[in-house]
Design a protein around this nucleic acid. Structure first.
Lengths: 462, 462
DNA sequence: TCATTTGTGACTAAACATTTC
DNA sequence: AGAAATGTTTAGTCACAAATG
């Protein structure tokens, strides 16, 4: 399926006229969906212009608009006025990332775990929790958004990251991804648009796709998203929200400068966007990086949903994240929590609380920072150029690779060589990019030896 | 806002012609939404027919169709061809039920808890779990759909309810409500329709509304949903799914007969519906009720998502539910799990597993059945007529009340008297009903004394 | 039973907005 | 700078289907 650049050439897609059944637009949409999911139309392929396809099929051109729109809502294609309609980068496959289904023989540099070495501390604290007098009260339906002392501990924890909030404007949910699912359901509607970095977290892309929320990719530089580009897009189309990971963007490891935060905050205010700030890496940044000032939440407390997961910083298996939000979001967010979770396990929250209050959580954080330091040093031995950009303690790195590689093929090939890594196409929020990368997770191997073996295999195969 | 029965009378809704802005349909929809949410148009009000309102506003009548459709998708109104368009029963308020925000002075006969008296057993077992050698492995990202031995214990548990399945077609999620959220996101799209009982679980109604899934209410009798009525609706419109709680329907406490299950299964097969079977009350029914045969899953294993929560039967604070599903749903459901939960806490699952394997879960079930028996006997002393219909061990009862009562007012009034109960309007999946009921939760008070006081207050106020 | 009322769904027409060249 | 290409949006026409009385 070639024909990208030559505008006037035989159409890239010629559906069979006779295959059309009566709800024409539906029939066309299903044909298109079929041809994309079965690989007849490769990602990036330019589809025929609406009017041209309409002529070819002898139907009104807005019937094609409708058919294309349907496929766009499902995430198979994207359209750019003036340029045309194209097959999405990941139209034919799921890009959801999980720890599931990975062979024990493969070294995982794909899924970003969180250096699980400190879980013995968690186990110790969990034992202590069981000795508490009020342990029975952890097992009922009460306090669906978090027990008061769990909330206080969370606020305490986040204060170190520069968050100043009160228990009425926070909730405990079951992990950061869960918080994102709740936020999107509570505050957005199908058809809404959310601005994101050009490369962004795949599971956020998948979630948006499932909720039929359109992502608007905004270019960025080494300081984060570009405010001018954001404003351009806000002027062009109606955008309701923006998703950012300022402390350490996933997958690029970009750390946003304070100046950039303020510039973006100005645009966000001007266009009344809802800011979703995923600050899962706060513990690697606040009070660690010299010129770190504050989370964006503090700049825009009334229009932000601030999400602080404890999976990366404290313990990944206890599913606990804190959400902090503006007063106007409270009702919707709590309603979404009740309907998606009912509540988060108080036992999990109690263990996290005890870890925080006892100071053990800070010990764990210190240990993880050390481990991250070591892992990044090892990475630098193999790929010195790539290790200089982005957050110095990031749990993953963004490695430029040759432009010609085919994404899914390359992932499969490397998996056959014994390592799992993810290609940048998985993280693409919109159109195709020229530059290609791999995201290399450093926090998921069982030993430094394994990490080194993995990186060695990687280096030899690039 | 009267004028229901008189067809030819001044229109019930006269939007200001001059308030209309250019996207006419949007403008009209927003006006309508505003007037409904602000109470100018009461639930049940018949709106002007599309053509009549179009004449009045001097616009094309399909512009009204579009405006009405928009509001219908958001759940504010519902339309019946031939009869007209009406304001939904709960258009102006959230009907989400949660344990949040209830004063300590109010006796809760609203939220259905689960007799929390046996949680000391859970606490004991939780302590034992902490002594296990592999406890550290409960705290990492592994096994996102459940550790193998957690799944085996789940299958074991469900076998007593007549479920025969294998670990590849099940997953552990964070409670039954979470399973519903996952199922709807994984297997349905905005605009899809799901058949439900006329009265159904409010949080399912809310979830469907948030996902823009339309509910199609189907009448039933004492044996459950009526197959003929289901088939009628299937013939009339395109329905993709059906939600049932055959063991003990919430809120009506109706228990479905085996004959009825088979009749419904035939229709479900014929129209290829996806059956969502919420069997949270299996433990009160299978091997308890004499003529109980099997869950519907066993009749339709390939097109069913079977959900078995442990919150009511074992422990409400540990958020664990089992999902069992046909092979064709596996991929979508797992994807939805990863994007909504990442995983369910293995610690919670381990405690539930240990409760099951040690036989303690069965002890708890026995205790809860005893408690349910006592609670129902107490209820029968106050309301003998209402206690004879529906499941004899139900954790809640369905109490007929005078027809004229206004639902939200009545709930408020009773709350002022010191009890929280929920009016049947909260559970209405479609049009208004003539008959009115209250759902009385029996499993939520701290003592029999408190339950008796609550029922006494209720009786005096009816 | 059949005309009337009422809602549904699909395609068409036309004005519009942005990008490209 | 302006014409051409391309996608967007709204509203109108029309055939149809179910419920009512």
């Amino acid at each position: 399926m070639p024909i990208n650049s030559f505008t006037h050439y035989p159409m890239s897609w010629k559906p069979d006229r006779h295959a059309l059944k009566r709800p024409l637009y539906l029939s066309i949409a299903l044909l298109l969906e079929h041809d994309i999911t079965n690989g007849f139309l490769a990602p990036g392929t330019k589809l025929p212009p609406q009017r041209e396809l309409a002529d070819f099929l002898d139907v009104n051109f807005t019937t094609i608009t409708r058919a294309y729109k349907l496929c766009e809502m499902k995430g198979f294609i994207y359209a750019v006025t003036g340029s045309g309609t194209f097959v999405s980068p990941n139209a034919a496959r799921s890009i959801t990332i999980s720890k599931d289904n990975i062979s024990r023989d493969v070294i995982d540099l794909g899924f970003v775990a969180s250096f699980e070495q400190s879980n013995h501390i968690v186990a110790d604290v969990a034992k202590q929790v069981m000795e508490k007098t009020y342990v029975e009260q952890l097992f009922n339906y009460h306090d669906p958004t978090g027990m008061p002392h769990h909330k206080m501990a969370g606020l305490n924890w986040m204060m170190a990251f520069g968050i100043h909030a009160d228990p009425d404007h926070m909730a405990i949910v079951s992990g950061a991804q869960n918080a994102l699912a709740i936020t999107l359901l509570a505050l957005f509607e199908p058809g809404n648009r959310i601005a994101v970095d050009l490369y962004t977290y795949s599971n956020f892309i998948e979630l948006a796709k499932m909720y039929r929320i359109q992502l608007v990719p905004i270019p960025g530089d080494d300081d984060g998203m570009l405010p001018g580009e954001l404003e351009n897009q806000c002027r062009l189309v109606d955008i309701q929200g923006i998703f950012l990971m300022p402390s350490c963007s996933n997958p690029t490891a970009v750390m946003m400068s304070d100046a950039r935060k303020k510039e973006l905050a100005a645009i966000i205010t001007k266009y009344s966007l809802i800011l979703i700030e995923d600050d899962i890496h706060a513990f690697l940044t606040a009070r660690v990086i010299d010129d770190y000032k504050q989370p964006m939440y503090q700049l825009l407390p009334e229009q932000t949903v601030y999400i602080c997961g404890t999976s990366k910083s404290i313990c990944s298996g206890l599913r606990v994240a804190y959400m902090v939000f503006g007063a106007s979001f409270k009702e919707s967010i709590e309603k979404a929590i009740f309907n998606i979770n009912v509540k988060t396990s108080s036992l999990d929250a109690e263990i996290i609380t005890e870890l925080i209050l006892s100071g053990k959580a800070n010990e764990i954080v210190e240990e993880k920072k050390q481990l991250a330091q070591s892992a990044n040093s090892i990475f630098a031995e193999y790929f010195p150029e790539a290790s200089s950009i982005g957050h110095p303690l990031s749990f993953y790195r963004w490695l430029p690779i040759a432009k010609d590689a085919n994404a899914p093929e390359m992932e499969t090939l490397l998996q056959q060589q014994g390592i799992r890594v993810f290609h940048s196409n998985r993280f693409l929020s919109g159109a195709r990019m020229q530059d290609k990368f791999l995201r290399i997770a450093l926090a998921s191997t069982n030993s430094w030896q394994e990490l080194q073996t993995g990186l060695e295999i990687l280096k030899q195969n690039l």
